[in-house]
């Protein structure tokens, strides 16, 4: 039973700003469906007493509130395709 349809793939592709060929669309639908089925095997376990886990580590460390060095301005914009006036430039965003 297919859970991932071509429509689902279209939706996800649109959110991810990807354009797919017809062939890719079908391949990904099939592959994503297989992955889901594989992962679904975990549903056969009884997890009633297992709290949900969001991360492999229980907790992490903290950083003190002490300012450090930021990038040199020219370094920050080094890889930017279209910098000007110290800014990253992007196509104009209408009504943003």
């Amino acid at each position: 039973m297919a859970r991932v349809t071509a429509e689902t793939v279209d939706h996800v592709a649109r959110l991810a700003h990807l354009s797919l060929t017809e062939e890719e669309r079908e391949t990904f639908a099939r592959q994503l469906d297989q992955i889901l089925q594989y992962v679904e095997s975990i549903q056969s376990l009884d997890t009633a007493d297992v709290p949900p886990m969001s991360h492999a580590l229980a907790t992490g460390g903290f950083r003190p509130d002490v300012p450090g060095k930021s990038l040199e301005p020219e370094r920050a914009l080094d890889e930017a395709p279209d910098p000007a006036e110290g800014l990253f430039r992007v196509p104009r965003i209408i009504g943003g």
């Binding site: 509130d65 002490v66 300012p67 301005p73």
Partner: peptide, 27 residues
């Protein structure tokens, strides 16, 4: 009102020249 950003040590300060308080984490 912290002195640094949430996940990196760049200064949390208003009014500086653009893109001067940035680092690989916040970029």
């Amino acid at each position: 009102l912290t002195r640094t950003k949430l996940f990196c040590s760049c200064p949390n300060r208003f009014g500086d020249p653009p893109n001067t308080n940035v680092c690989p984490v916040c970029l």
